[in-house]
Each structure stands twice: as structure tokens, then as C-alpha cells.
Design a protein around this nucleic acid. Structure first.
Lengths: 230, 230
DNA sequence: GCGCCGCTGTCTTGCGCGTGTCATCAATCC
DNA sequence: GGATTGATGACACGCGCAAGACAGCGGCGC
């Protein structure tokens, strides 16, 4: 999962520094500027995943930056969170109408901004916000029914998919065949436990990639577990 | 354009009544309740397009309602706007972390709530706000009922149109036949799920263009999804 | 009213892939 | 070495989807 790229546009230096620090610590890739024109430049050359934009900044005004970002094809759908010092409702409504996705009124707590950013990203790019399962070099998107290993898409049958999903939900944990049957089949009681072996084998060869270890660990007389592999 | 369905959960009776009136006047289909358990019931039997949720309500608490909505497959992606008491930052952060999409602090003006609802809907389901949808090389204009692929107009039947519109609102996401029936038919319960297959086929041949891939992906034993194709 | 045509839902057929079981071989344990 | 447990390959069955056909229905023009 790549670090979400943030563009922070804030001309209050101490606040900007604080936010940059906090967001970096949370695993975001932050690019900061105090200037509206620079912001447009940065956004054009490397579109970020989200923009945090102060309403009152040097150079081009916040609302104008917002409008121009929306006008450009590459940045039209980048979510924008506005920071405003004014509590005036008119400004907030106008901000939303201009195309901001969200706003926060100063003063605010960094913690709340963090939560907001996470919420917006979760909505816009689910893959960035943990709606996808990720274990080692593998990712599974339960919404799109997509599985990848090292970026390359894999093809699994329905049963292998359910099996892998369950294993990825509890990595490193060992499950008995009975537990796996219960989890990935809906008529578990009618099915032989040996069948699990077969599907584990099919899963193994479906996720097989040259030069990489088998992430599925066999535990003799106990069951199977999924280990993170990089 | 169908009226967006709102579920309003608010136990302050005068406020609830006011909001119900205002939103109805704006063309929304509003269902209101003061009770968290009823809200879950309503949401289960007929998933709304958006939920307005007071944090402090009778019965199951707001945060719990939010969590349960997120847990259910059918309502996991319904946007939620929560209403909190002034200054309760903890509630706001927890709400956003639980999966609320937005919040408003009491007291607020109905006008601002209207703007927020419109903003969230525009973001989540642009078609409800009359914006043209765009996925890969296809565009759909919900106002003009026009569909194009690579600039060339397509001819779809009514059912194919509704089906495609729903798929384009959530690209890459896999929908079960039941979900598609629910979304594109108005008497979904009287209709065989196999019928979806047939309309998917008709949709496929309607959007077929020589030299371009089929954007509709079949996911065995799960459903269908629309993939962006250029 | 009559006939035409487009849309829709269901059914049938055909095919391919996924699935469960078994027999056999390999590995591990005691 | 014998016994137990897992891995592998083969195979037959059936489920799930695609495609074609068709009848019912409603709108529309004449």
C-alpha cells in the first residue's frame, strides 16, 4: 500500500510544521507550501491524493486555488479539505459549493484533521484506507473481488478466494481443516476434511510466483496458516 | 431522476419535523425516526442513499447504529452525516473513525445541512445531482439520458440504461444479481435473478465497439463489475 | 381497430470451469 | 521400518454463465 500523497497549503508556519510532522508520522507523504501559486504548480506536476488548503493564503487565494484545481483534468477529482479561520456559515457553504470536499474551522485539533483526512480518503480511495486486506506482498480487495501479489493480478476460483480471504483476515494464525471448512464453505458438514488439502494446493499454485516463498505454512496434525512474505 | 432517499434519525421532535419538511420541499424522499433500532430496521429493508444521524438518540446509540450500518453489506457504503453537540470533539473524531462521512455541530442552520447533504451526494453519487458520469472511455449524462463510448452515441433500452448507470456510479465494484435487481428494477422481488444475466448480455452487445475490450467483468458465483477501459 | 416493432422476462441448450473424491506417492514421526 | 499425515495427479460430475429463441406486452402509426 503506497503512502497517500498530501499537498499541504498553509501559510501559518508553526501550524504547517506541526501538521507536516504529524502527517509524516502517520505514514503520509507530505509536500508543503505556503503559497497558492506554488500549490498549483506542485499539483500539476505530481497530482496528490488529497489537498489540505488554507482559505487565507499568500498569492492566489484558497478559493481560487480550489477552483483552478477543479478545472484541470488531472486534479479535478482530487479531494480538498479547506481550513478556514472564519466561522461564517456563508463561507462554509460557498466553500462546499466551489468543490471543496470538506472544511475545518480554526482552531482545530490535529487529531480531528487526521480523522477527517482518513475519512475522506477512505471514501475516495478505499485501497488507501484499509478497505483492502494486505498481508505481506499480497492484497485482497473484497469489494472488487481482486487479488494481487506484488502488483500482479491473480486468478482464483470462488472457493480459493474465500479461503484466502479468511486466512488473510487472520494472518499467522493456524486453522484446523474443520475451521477452514466452516469459514469458506456453506455446507461444511457434508464435506470431507481432505478436500481442504486439495483447495490449499490449488490456492498455493494460484498464488505461486517465481522466486518467492510459499506464504502458506502447513502445520502437521493441526492445519494451515498464512505467513506474511515480502 | 429519482428522488434521493434520506433516512433521518433524530429524537428532537421539533427539529426532526423541521428537517423533514425542508428536505421534502427540496425533493428528497425522507423517512424519519427517533429511534436507533428502528433506523437499523428501515435501513435494512430499504437502503437509503444517505443517513442523517443524531449522535445522542434513544435506543441503540448513534455510534452503534453507524457501526452496524457499516457492518452490513447492503449499507456498508451508504454515506452518513452525523449531528453532534457543540464542542464534543471526542465524539466527532470517534464518529469519523467509525465511518461517518461528515458531521455537523448543533446548533446548525438547515441551509448548511442541505448544502452538506448535496455535497456528499454529489461526491458519492454524482448522477443523483445531475452530473455526467465518466468511467474509462464511457460517459453517461443522467439529465439528457445520453450514453457515449469514445465519443460515439450508444443506444440502450431503459433497463440496460439503469443497469449501466448504477454500475458506473460504483466502478470496479462487484454487485450480486440481487443487488443489481434491487438497483435497476422496481419490482425486484418478483423477478428471477437469471434475468440479470440476460440484461448484462444485452448491455454488453449494446456497448460493444470493435477493437475495444468488454468493460463488464463477470465474477463467477459473485456477480458483475464495470471496469474502466480506455 | 389492426398490425408493426421494440422491450422484457423466461426457458432451453450448450459449454467450460470449478469442485469433491479417490488412489497413489512423499514426508514426517515414533 | 511401520504408521500416520500431507502432497499430488487424475477424473467425473454438476454448477454457473453465455447465447439463442420465443412469447407476452405495450406503444405507436396508420
Amino acid at each position: 500500500m503506497p503512502a497517500p500523497k498530501l499537498l499541504l497549503v498553509e501559510d501559518d508556519a508553526p501550524l504547517a510544521e506541526l501538521l507536516e510532522y504529524r502527517f509524516s508520522a502517520e505514514g503520509y507523504a507530505v509536500r508543503a507550501t505556503a503559497n497558492g501559486d506554488d500549490a498549483l504548480l506542485y499539483a500539476a506536476e505530481d497530482p496528490p491524493d488529497l489537498v489540505i488548503l488554507d482559505w487565507m493564503i499568500e498569492g492566489t487565494s484558497g478559493i481560487e486555488v480550489c477552483r483552478r484545481l477543479r478545472r484541470r483534468e488531472e486534479t479535478a477529482h482530487v479531494p480538498i479539505i479547506m481550513l478556514t479561520a472564519r466561522g461564517a456559515e456563508d463561507d462554509r457553504v460557498r466553500g462546499l459549493e466551489t468543490g471543496a470536499d470538506d472544511y475545518l474551522t480554526k482552531p482545530f485539533s490535529p487529531r480531528e484533521l487526521l480523522a477527517r483526512v482518513a475519512a475522506v480518503l477512505r471514501r475516495v480511495r478505499p485501497a488507501l484506507a484499509g478497505e483492502t486486506l494486505s498481508v505481506g506482498d499480497m492484497t485482497l480487495d473484497p469489494v472488487a473481488f481482486r487479488v494481487e501479489r506484488g502488483g500482479a493480478p491473480l486468478h482464483l476460483g470462488p472457493t480459493e478466494y474465500r479461503l484466502l480471504k479468511y486466512l488473510m483476515e487472520h494472518p499467522k494464525r493456524v486453522f484446523s481443516r474443520a475451521q477452514l471448512l466452516e469459514a469458506a464453505w456453506d455446507n461444511a458438514d457434508e464435506i470431507s476434511e481432505r478436500t481442504v488439502d486439495v483447495h490449499i494446493r490449488r490456492l498455493r499454485q494460484a498464488i505461486e510466483v517465481a522466486g518467492r516463498d510459499d506464504p502458506i505454512r502447513t502445520v502437521r496434525s493441526a492445519g494451515y496458516a498464512l505467513e506474511p512474505v515480502r
